[in-house]
Computed example of a mutant assay.
Amino acid sequence: MSQTFRHSEIIDIARRDGRVTVEGLAAHFGVTLQTIRRDLSDLAEAGRLDRVHGGAVLPSGITNIGYEERRALNTDAKTAIAAACAAEIPDNISIFLNIGTSTEAVAHALGQHANLLVVTNNMNVANILAANEGCEVVVTGGRLRRSDGGLVGNLAAETIRKFKFDLAVIGCSALSEEGDLLDFDIEEVGVSQTILAQTRRTFLVADRSKFTRSAPALIATLAEIDTFFTDAVLPDALARSCAEWETGVVVAPPGGGLPQPGS
């Protein structure tokens, strides 16, 4: 395989898994460790990866990757997480679903639910749930973010304040080692914080790639979340923190395995 094709696939693997290792890539491509180290150095010089001990991670930044690219990432993990989350959502409640490809996966998983009032600032969620006659769908106002169909700003927050939801399902762009939920858009952060203030319970849906990403704006912490649905066991320190905060963790592995308690 040529260097150009290796570089492209290395980036794809990093986006899928959040990080890459020298040994793992060498085994994957059947090349020497030295070759992979050169590849990672080239990608780091181009600003496409940040080198870390033993491998590389996606670079920290202040802008998110493109929406269609995010939608295509970790689809099996998002499907498993969404199924586990939907299984914990009863019929006959009010629920908020916010912006993100993970919450869209949850909307797909709600296809058989009945008598739900679903409020959303995600045009894609609204379109998905339009096919479920058992859901009454309310779309907030707000400024349309054409890149992902999200509605943000003061008008979205004002609509949300008119409700008290039984449950909110939210996503995030990144999750720090300390359990901070992070995002890139300060307007979206303000809306997410309003959602948290207007709900009785909150579920977070986020796959393992969020553990190794960074974003500049703080939404909340896992201490404010009732249950966190993900696809990988949490790092030990974060798992201990979730136990102290009484934040439930459900690990839903891709490929059909049964969801497991994560802490």
Rank of each mutant, 00 (worst) to 15 (best):
Q3W: 13
F5I: 14
H7F: 07
H7Q: 10
E9A: 09
D17I: 02
T21V: 01
T21C: 08
A26K: 08
A26S: 08
A27T: 05
H28T: 02
H28N: 01
F29G: 07
G30V: 03
T32W: 02
L33M: 09
D39C: 03
D39Q: 02
L40C: 07
S41H: 09
L43F: 08
E45Q: 09
A56M: 05
V57M: 12
V57P: 13
V57C: 12
P59C: 06
P59T: 11
N64Q: 14
E68K: 13
A72D: 10
D76E: 15
A77F: 14
A77G: 08
A86M: 01
D91R: 15
I99N: 02
L117R: 03
V118Y: 04
V118N: 06
N121D: 09
N121I: 00
V125F: 01
A126P: 04
A130D: 06
A131G: 07
A131D: 09
E133D: 11
C135A: 05
V137K: 00
R145L: 03
R146L: 13
D148M: 04
G150N: 02
V152W: 12
A168N: 02
S173R: 09
S173E: 07
S173P: 06
S176C: 06
E178L: 12
D180C: 09
F184V: 08
I186M: 08
V189R: 00
I195N: 03
R200F: 15
F203V: 14
F211L: 15
S214N: 15
I219K: 04
T221D: 10
T227P: 11
F228P: 07
T230K: 13
A232Q: 15
V233C: 12
V233F: 15
P235A: 04
A243M: 13
V249I: 14
V250R: 11
P254S: 11
P261D: 10
G262Q: 14
